[in-house]
Each structure stands twice: as structure tokens, then as C-alpha cells.
Write a protein that binds this DNA or RNA. Structure first.
Length: 504
RNA sequence: GGCCCGUUCGUCUAGGGGUUAGGACGUUAGAUUUUCAUUCUAGAAACAGGGGUUCGAUUCCCCUACGGGCUACCA
């Protein structure tokens, strides 16, 4: 057992970072923090993925938004760096060669095309302990011939030599004891022809060198765990092998497989934390930020997808998650993603947040939609008035914009059927009565309104809705007289007059 | 196909040999709010099936079914 908890996650900068990845990172992070350990980020920039513009920054942005600190210095400043896979090439080569020397790996000269054509012809073809005897590799061709090929620079890969019929057993922190028969696993490529390692080699070498104590990753890695276990053994590091935990997957809402990056479009909800433009297709996917999520709501939702503290509590902040996180409360089964519940978490966080905290999130949304909110004190009051009716931050536009901008469209269908000259006259008189009385409170305004209604013998109920629609445009929003009070008597009068024309 | 992992309301889940199987989302009904939302109250809703073990199984074991993952010079 290592003396200190150290976990790491290796995001690949090509595909963006979708919620499955963020959740894995989150669990790594929570575990590390809970045990006062360290969290390392290693960038999985293989040759074909390294040049995606801005991809690393995107990952940092996502994590920082969530409250997990990550930036360029995380990658460059760590004591076990370099953390970019592309900068560690020679390290991987060295260990791969050592495995060959020790008889646990071999050079294979078959081209990708050759193997592909075999797959076409032979059903379920695998490069394994049986088929390797008939393929072009350093086990089948004479030693010197193989050496010469290497010297001549012939393209080759290094594959692990999986033993025949050996039980490879290990303990998963979430699933318990798991065993595989080595014959069932193929001879995975360790080092590719371009000199880059595959995940299998990289994860073992880096975890050893970076003194990683625990590996948390998605359940999809379970079948290749025996390769990694064997590598730890063959490299002579068995005593320092980290503990393994395979996290349950996040599934599609329709139960049809694991949630993938393209599912956002199909199901109509975000799957990325921040809007992401796919490099290959140029397709833009909205993120949780753009959908109006608070980082707290997002993290809370993600953490509950596969974990709970055993009580009925549903709302957790990051600090509390760190304090209460424990491995034995992670589930074994995958969880279908439920966007409705995700929104509910967010709504709870909006209601629980102070107006001050919400201001920084709400202001840009309003401004972006052309609503001028220069007076922060006023905005703060408005946020407090409407936050309980917002589930997403974007809801603040509909719920708050009429405090700043008069409606130019009215839900006249809700007014016109019962509209008449008496009511019109009522509103004209009402504006005259409140004229210049800017210091009236909302209850006083209400009293003026009701007294006048009584005098004119019109039911108050028949006047409230028209007033609301005049001020707001539709059937929503906080108490009408609170609105009148906030926007002021003069603005109220203007809006009534405008609407009176529209109702004719 | 092979190997591995899994299975409690529609969904996320608690529980765990004896419970009226609990909570949350969603949903339905009602109350409050002279709008909408919030809030509150109530309701419908689950242990995949079959064998064991046991006085007793949703809980432990086995089988089946179903779901998922992997089976690339991707991660």
C-alpha cells in the first residue's frame, strides 16, 4: 500500500470531455480529497489527437467550472511530469523493450491491413496465443531475421505475450474478486508502429512512475484489466500495483447502451459540460453551462449517478461530497441518465443560492439577450423575487426580463373575451390616481387598486389578470403589485397605456 | 459467437433472512398562491423467472432470461 492516495485521470483531448468522463474525474477527485491525497491529470495526446486546437484548454475550462482546479501548470508543474503522453515516448519504448527481452512481449511485423483482411476471412479472428504461431512476429521468424528487420526500420509493433491458460485474478474495490483466463485475452498491442504506447502500456508505466495508489475508471475497462495486471507483474512491480475500481457506466435514457457523445443531439439534452465543437465533423454541441446549469447542480447530479451516502439526502455540495464520499457506496449497476432529475437538482441549487451568488451567472444571460442590467442592486432584488420559479439559469430571461424591458406582445387572448369599456376606464382612472406617487408600497398600491375596483363595482379578480398581462405580457411572474412597486409608477402607467391601445 | 459485469416502482435509489419494502424525480388528485411557479397534503407505482438452503427468502447459492461492456496499431 502506498503511503499516500494518488489518483490520476487521463483525458484524451480529441473528443472533448463528456459527462461520463467528468464523472470519472469527479470520483477520482472526491476520493483523493477525502483521503487528503493528490489528484493528477495526464493528457492522453496520442499522435493523431495531439493537434486539436484548444482541446486541452477545453478540458481545463470544464474542470475549473466544476470546481476542480486544473490548468497548464497542473500539466507542466507536477513533480512526476511530463504529463503529456507525447512527451513520454522514450519512457514507454524502454519498458516495452524490457518486456520483449524478458520474454513477456514480442515484435510483430504484420501490417494493420494484413490483419484487417484476416478479420474479413476468419470469423472472430484474434491475435492471441494460438494465432500468433502463424503470424509474422519475433516468435515465429528466426531471431536474427527479426533483429535485421528492426535494424532496417521495418514497421513493427510490440505485443504482450499472453500466457496460455492461466488464471489472472484481482480484487476490484467495487465488484470484489474477479478472475479471467489468460487464454481468453488477445495479445494486445503495447507499442504502436508510430512509437506511441497504447493505453495498456501507458496506464501501467505512468501509474507506476507517478506512484498512483488507486485507479478509478469506467467499467468498460474491466475486460482489459488482466492485461494490466500481468504487465504490473511482468515489469516486476507487482508489490506496488494500485488498487482497482471499475465505475458503473452512465447509460442512455432509453436503456440502449452507454451514453455517448452523440446522444445529446438525439435526446435533446447536453452531454458536455461546456459547448463543444467536434473537430472532425465541425458539429457544435451545447453544454450544461449553455443550458443554464449551475456548477453546483451539475456536480450534485453527477455525483448521485452511481453513488449516495445511504441516507435520504439528495442535495450535496462539493465540500460535503468530499467529506462523505466512500467507495463502498458506489453502485455496481449502470445508471440511465435522467435529464428531468438533472434539472431538478439545478432548480434546488438555484433556490438555495443567494441572489449575490446567482448574479454572476444571471447577468451575462440577460445581457446576452439584450436586457440591460446596469443596476446590480435592482437586479439582486429581482433575482430574489423570481429565483424560486427558475429551474435553469436561462429561465431568468423569461422570469426577469420584464422588470427591465416593457413587453411588446401581450397574451391578449386571455384578456379580450372579457374586456369592455368599464375596465378600460378603470385603468385610465387607476393611472391617474397613482400618478406621481412613487413612494407607495406594494400593499398601498394594492389598496388603491382594490378601493377603486369597489367604487367602480368591478370584481378585483377580473382586473388582476389584465393588469398582469399589461405589465408582464403573459400569465406568469411574481405578485403584480410587487412588480408595480419594482418597476415604478411611471413605468407602470406607460405600460398600461401601451396595452390599452393594443387591447382595443 | 466468446469472455466479463450487472438486475428493487417508468427513472435514480435505500434496505437486506421475519419490514405495511423507505426516499427522490416524473406522474395523478387536492390545498395555498385573485397569474405562473414555489410550497404543502394525498394517491398510483417495484424486489426478472425457476429451483434450492432455511421454520421463513426480495435478501444467501445455482440455473435461466434479460440488460450492459469488451472482443482495434481507440481510449
Amino acid at each position: 500500500m502506498k503511503d499516500k492516495v494518488r489518483v490520476r485521470f487521463a483525458p484524451s483531448p480529441t473528443g472533448g470531455l463528456h459527462i461520463g468522463g467528468v464523472r470519472t474525474i469527479l470520483f477520482n477527485y472526491l476520493f483523493a480529497k477525502h483521503h487528503n491525497g493528490e489528484f493528477i491529470l495526464r493528457i492522453e495526446d496520442t499522435d493523431q489527437t495531439r493537434f486539436v486546437e484548444g482541446a486541452e484548454e477545453y478540458i481545463y475550462n470544464c474542470l475549473n467550472w466544476c470546481g476542480i482546479t486544473a490548468d497548464e501548470s497542473t500539466i507542466n508543474g507536477g513533480e512526476y511530469g511530463p504529463y503529456r503522453q507525447s512527451e513520454r515516448k522514450s519512457i514507454y519504448r524502454k519498458y516495452a523493450e524490457q518486456l520483449v527481452k524478458d520474454g513477456h512481449a514480442y515484435y510483430a511485423f504484420d501490417t494493420a491491413e494484413e490483419l484487417e483482411s484476416k478479420r474479413q476471412v476468419i470469423e472472430n479472428f484474434r491475435y492471441d496465443h494460438t494465432s500468433r504461431k502463424h503470424l509474422r512476429n519475433s516468435l515465429t521468424i528466426p531471431h536474427e531475421a527479426a533483429e535485421n528487420l528492426i535494424k532496417e526500420g521495418a514497421p513493427h509493433v510490440i505485443r504482450i505475450k499472453m500466457p496460455d491458460d492461466e488464471q489472472v485474478a484481482f480484487t476490484d474495490l467495487i465488484r470484489g474478486d474477479i478472475a479471467f483466463n489468460s487464454s481468453e485475452v488477445d495479445d494486445k498491442v503495447l507499442l504502436k508502429a508510430d512509437g506511441m504506447p497504447t493505453y495498456h502500456l501507458a496506464v501501467v508505466v505512468d501509474d507506476y512512475l507517478m506512484k498512483i495508489s488507486h485507479v478509478f475508471r469506467g467499467e468498460e475497462w474491466l475486460p482489459s484489466a488482466p492485461v494490466h495486471i500481468l504487465l504490473w507483474k511482468y515489469l516486476g512491480w507487482a508489490n506496488e500495483m494500485p488498487k482497482w475500481a471499475h465505475l458503473p457506466l452512465i447509460l442512455k435514457p432509453d436503456g440502449n447502451g452507454k451514453l455517448s457523445k452523440r446522444d445529446g443531439e438525439r435526446f435533446g439534452f447536453p452531454v458536455y459540460p461546456i459547448n463543444w465543437i467536434d473537430n472532425a465533423s465541425g458539429k457544435k454541441s451545447d453544454g450544461f453551462i449553455e443550458a443554464g446549469f449551475l456548477p453546483e447542480g451539475f456536480i450534485n447530479m453527477l455525483a448521485m449517478l452511481g453513488w449516495n451516502d445511504g441516507t435520504d439526502q439528495e442535495i450535496f455540495g462539493m465540500e460535503e461530497l468530499i467529506a462523505k464520499f466512500s467507495l463502498d457506496r458506489i453502485h455496481k449497476a449502470g445508471a440511465k441518465f435522467d435529464y428531468e432529475k438533472a434539472k431538478w437538482y439545478n432548480g434546488e441549487w438555484i433556490k438555495a443560492s443567494s441572489a449575490k451568488h446567482l448574479l454572476n451567472h444571471v447577468k451575462p444571460i440577460l445581457n446576452q439577450k439584450g436586457v440591460n442590467t446596469s443596476d446590480d442592486d435592482y437586479l439582486l432584488k429581482i433575482i430574489d423575487m423570481v429565483k424560486e420559479r427558475c429551474v435553469l439559469l436561462t429561465d431568468f430571461y423569461e422570469q426577469a426580463s420584464f422588470f427591465f424591458v416593457a413587453p411588446d406582445k401581450w397574451d391578449t387572448n386571455s384578456v379580450k373575451p372579457k374586456w369592455n369599456a368599464d375596465k378600460e376606464a378603470f385603468f385610465v382612472t387607476f393611472t391617474e390616481q397613482i400618478k406621481g406617487k412613487e413612494d407607495l408600497s406594494s400593499t398601498e398600491l394594492e389598496k388603491v387598486f382594490k378601493d377603486l375596483a369597489a367604487e367602480k363595482k368591478i370584481k378585483v379578480g377580473e382586473l388582476m389578470l389584465p393588469l398582469r398581462i399589461m405589465l408582464v405580457g403573459g400569465k406568469f411572474g411574481p405578485g403584480v403589485f410587487d412588480i408595480v412597486y419594482q418597476i415604478g409608477v411611471e413605468e407602470t402607467t406607460n405600460r398600461i397605456n401601451n396595452a390599452l391601445n393594443a387591447f382595443k
